[in-house]
Design a protein around this nucleic acid. Structure first.
Lengths: 358, 358
DNA sequence: TTGTACGCGTTATCAA
DNA sequence: TTGATAACGCGTACAA
């Protein structure tokens, strides 16, 4: 389409090599030459052909972002923030969605990103050995968000710890019949959060000497509706739980909804805790465990940029903090001794960690 | 890195041309030759180098998707569906976020996608003349989602019509003091929906002979919190509205929240209608105007694929239907004549237009 | 059906 | 500081 480097060279009365140097701001070009080249390029509307540059340098200035969902809160936040950091450094984002087991298998088999990107970032995907191998074989930097791994650097929160925060809060309020609502995806093993958060849930129960009732541990789609469905099942039991820990705020909102639709009240009849600190959590007075989603995306992007610009640093496993954000969806169980009321939820308002740029 | 086409050729005892033909499934290759090439490629782990292929053919098999938000419901739906359609056809998605006026200006000026993609899809961006020109100059197919344009094919709904559906519903219920809650973004002119929906709002009011009160038309951030803020302002008036049309479900949920926080009830004291049919709308019993978001993304992607594979078809302007989904957030105004109750909201449950694949 | 040889547009090496 | 030229790896006329 546009002019090529040769025409610019001719136009400016220099060689193509000089044009290339001038265009990229390399040092060894005299100011006047640089000027002439710049003018010629502008006049001809010259633009470096990306593929030619890639072919010659071996660098694509592109990062692949691989995620099982785009529409769920956590994933959108991570991808958004990562994209911003990358764009700020003149890297493009090639987006891959591996929602279902089938597309995921196809992705790791064909590796469509091969020869197309300089680095890969995977969001909340627990990798099989084969997948890990396939990624390793790419020979480019890889970073994970939301999962620990011995193979690659990662940025995440401690999901078990976070869940423990939530469940301990419920135990401290006096609850003993505490349910867990977890999400199941297309591929059950795709996303690690549910299992890790369940681990935290179980640990706290055991630590508190509470007998674990497996029938209080229910799974459904990781959506609002899934939360409704799961809670409906719990409410259908002869003895429903007095509190619920939902693995995500999205599900927690569904849980709250189901409670209210059953004519019960939150937190009077059922306490609910979520995970994420979704934008809606504050609005809906949902007690939750906040995790810094944007930060995780931005940080993972930085990790990759560092590896690309300066050769890999130490293969970090950055664990960002979670924190309990008590709101009005949790309270002592009905009929608990008044002394249970020792700490009324202080109604802390979460500081919204505003989007960094713009 | 990996083996090149030459090594595969040598390994298979054929020429590079034959390897190229065999790898791409072109017709003129004998079955045995094809076999030999395939085996050689597999043994050497050969993969076509993308940039070299692009340089030789001029085709990138990549589409740029440009959007001002990733995290808002409509945008996530559109991008998700478009990405799926493109991936199914072996196209990659290069994602560009132009959230703020600054990044938008930089994007259209530098056009970082130039020479990197075969086509461009823009989501809910009203293009200036300069931006249109810049896109035209790329000389590649362009498609718009959520906006009409004389310059490029588009897929959208009629926002004014949709809004009219909502407001007429309120008027039919007997409301006359109807507020509008609209979103404002970083760049006020970035997204066209607010203005178009406002137009529908005003038209219905005028058509019904209702005097338009400009102070009932409030704007805030296009988020849950923005909805809360806008409604709080409306409730602070000496005479608050009896009904609110919010430009998006996200804002509508905030509006509902503000109403309830003020000790009022939905719909008894205030009716609320949204726009989108967000996953949460059903859950929250929010009456809304449904628009097919996934379909718009998928359709726009198909448009681009058609243009790429078969040369541009007619520059379509595909307008998909909206429909009112009455739920429990709307009712006749308090104190209205009983006959106003003529049609109790039938509680239609929206059919969720399930994600097509997987 | 297969092979030869050139072009795609840059960058990098080396010599001047 | 600048220029000539050889890669980079593939696709494709054209010839066989």
């Amino acid at each position: 389409m546009g002019a090529s480097i040769h025409e610019v060279a001719r136009h400016a009365g220099v060689s193509t090599a000089t044009v290339s140097r001038a265009m990229r701001g390399l040092p060894n070009v005299s100011p006047q030459t640089r000027q002439r080249v710049a003018r010629a390029a502008a006049e001809l509307g010259y633009v470096v052909t990306h593929s030619a540059s890639v072919l010659a340098t071996g660098r694509t200035r592109t990062v692949a972002v691989v995620a099982p969902y785009l529409t769920r809160w956590f994933f959108a936040q991570v991808i958004d923030a990562a994209g911003e950091t990358l764009a700020d450094n003149d890297y493009g984002v090639l987006l891959y969605n591996v929602a279902c087991a089938e597309s995921r298998a196809r992705f790791f088999e064909r590796m469509p990103l091969r020869t197309r990107v300089d680095a890969v970032m995977l969001v909340s995907l627990r990798l099989s050995d084969d997948e890990t191998r396939a990624l390793r074989k790419l020979g480019i930097p890889v970073a994970l968000v939301g999962v620990a791994s011995e193979a690659f650097p990662s940025v995440r929160v401690d999901d078990a710890d976070g869940a423990a925060l939530a469940v301990r809060h419920l135990v401290d309020l006096g609850h003993r019949r505490i349910a867990m609502v977890a999400g199941v995806g297309e591929a059950a093993t795709a996303v690690p959060a549910p299992a890790d958060r369940r681990r935290g849930y179980l640990e706290v129960l055991r630590g508190a000497g509470i007998a674990v009732d497996p029938s209080l541990d229910v799974s459904a789609a990781a959506t609002f509706d899934g939360g409704v469905e799961a809670m409906s099942r719990l409410l259908a039991r002869r003895v429903p739980p007095t509190a619920v820990f939902a693995e995500s705020d999205e599900m927690a909102l569904g849980v709250m909804r189901a409670v209210r639709r059953a004519g019960l009240r939150v937190p009077d009849d059922v306490s609910v805790v979520g995970f994420d600190d979704h934008d809606l959590a504050d609005l809906m007075d949902l007690t939750t465990v906040a995790q810094p989603a944007q930060e995780q995306g931005a940080l993972a992007a930085s990790l990759l940029l560092d590896a690309l610009e300066t050769g890999a640093g130490p293969p970090a496993d950055l664990v960002l903090p979670t924190r309990l954000v008590p709101r009005r969806s949790t309270a002592p169980p009905r009929g608990s001794a008044p002394l249970g009321r020792r700490d009324a939820p202080p109604l802390t308002r979460a500081v919204a960690g505003p989007r960094t740029a713009c």
